[in-house]
Design a protein around this nucleic acid. Structure first.
Lengths: 220, 220
DNA sequence: CATAACAGTGAAAAATTCGTGAAATATTAA
DNA sequence: TTAATATTTCACGAATTTTTCACTGTTATG
């Protein structure tokens, strides 16, 4: 775990560095925003602890600059009581925010939380229909809390259904939009995939309604 | 755009409120689930931002309660960390989900996305004639609010009638346009389908008028 | 009123459609 | 390459839908 610590106070850098290294991480230091930007251009870090008020280039501007090129999680460190700053800090893409004076322990906890969130899955488009939960960006589907493994086509069909909830879809339309215009196969291919998708959705197969003589519809 | 913000932390409410108002929306606040439920009984909101963990009544229970009466889009705001994982699979009833800490900008983007999704749905062309409702997009027909199952041909005939409301249609024209030019069967086939359609439309069979010596007409 | 033409109806026959399993083919990972 | 997965094709059987058709009821007209 490579942590870049950006603060103009050497004392603070040292304390944080000690904690990071105690937990087996590598700590790197920058004394101001400008330096931090340069270091990020040269190397990759797993997370940045960034002070707000610094000479030469402040923390916000530095984060903005860094995030232009790399998506690195950032925790802002700032003096207490700067509510406007807090708001602005989130907007420019900070992932968490700690007010000074802070306990190094708390900072470490936040580092872990933020990294976990990054490694897990960013907050994403999640829709639920009763016990059927569909996480579009994470590409996960849960039936009563249990993850079900779908093949790529099954995911795509399900996502397409959800996006077109309640709309009658012909096989041709499904083939056109899910398979692509250049599919020249059998109409009934759709049926087979629907069959598989249904069996994977268990009791929530009920959401996929057959429209005889037409096609299918997702109705929740 | 009326947004109900439900969170026990005033800070968070303020940040979100500021953003909502900045974009020209009206923000309303509730400090816990109980308050939110009451407010939803009293007034209508376009969307709800709902924290999960709150005193008195938690976010999930509040959503469940609110959704009993009204179908309002909800975005859940969860506390950071581990319970994120536990949230899957439960019957959330939420339309999207954001983990704290979040950027207000992201929340705003999601509000727009969810509202768009909601407003897109009733883009379907729905027509009503007294208690007879025809949903072309969803391929549904309701008689006094109750869904009736029609066969494909029955749907097609009904849709064709609606599109040609008030126009006298010969059997030949119906066969030509609904069945297709390549139908070489009996004229009287139409009669049988009209019979079935009429019986399915119950009291609204009256809209299908027989033109003796000619054919039929849909008159509403 | 008689009657002829036409529409409504029920029931049986014919045709279509869908769900499914299994095999064939294609794609991907190791 | 092989092995594992995923996709596609296809044919059977069940279920549904469509069509035909004979019969019945209705309407218009002389």
């Amino acid at each position: 775990m490579k942590v870049l610590i950006v603060d103009d106070e050497e004392m603070i850098r040292n304390v944080l560095k000690e904690y990071v290294e105690f937990e087996g991480g590598e700590a790197y230091e920058a004394a101001d925003g400008m330096e931090a930007v340069k270091m990020c251009r040269a190397a990759d870090y797993d997370i940045i602890l960034m002070d707000v008020m610094m000479p030469r280039l402040d923390g916000f501007s530095a984060v903005k600059e860094i995030k232009k090129n790399k998506n690195i999680p950032v925790i802002m460190l700032s003096a207490r009581g700067e509510e406007y700053d807090k708001l602005f800090g989130f907007e420019i893409g900070a992932d968490d925010y700690v007010t000074k004076p802070f306990s190094p322990k708390e900072v470490m906890a936040r580092i872990h939380a933020v990294l976990k969130r990054y490694s897990d899955e960013p907050s994403s488009d999640i829709v639920s229909f009763e016990g059927l939960t569909i996480d579009m960006t994470g590409r996960n589907v849960y039936v009563d809390g249990e993850k079900v493994e779908l093949t790529p086509k099954e995911y795509e069909i399900l996502f397409y259904f959800v996006k077109n909830k309640g709309i009658a879809l012909t096989r041709e339309k499904l083939l056109m939009d899910v398979w692509g215009f250049d599919f020249y196969g059998d109409d009934r291919t759709v049926d087979t995939h629907i069959k598989m998708l249904r069996s994977n959705l268990k009791q929530y197969r009920k959401f996929i309604v057959t429209l005889r003589g037409l096609g299918y519809k997702f109705e929740a």
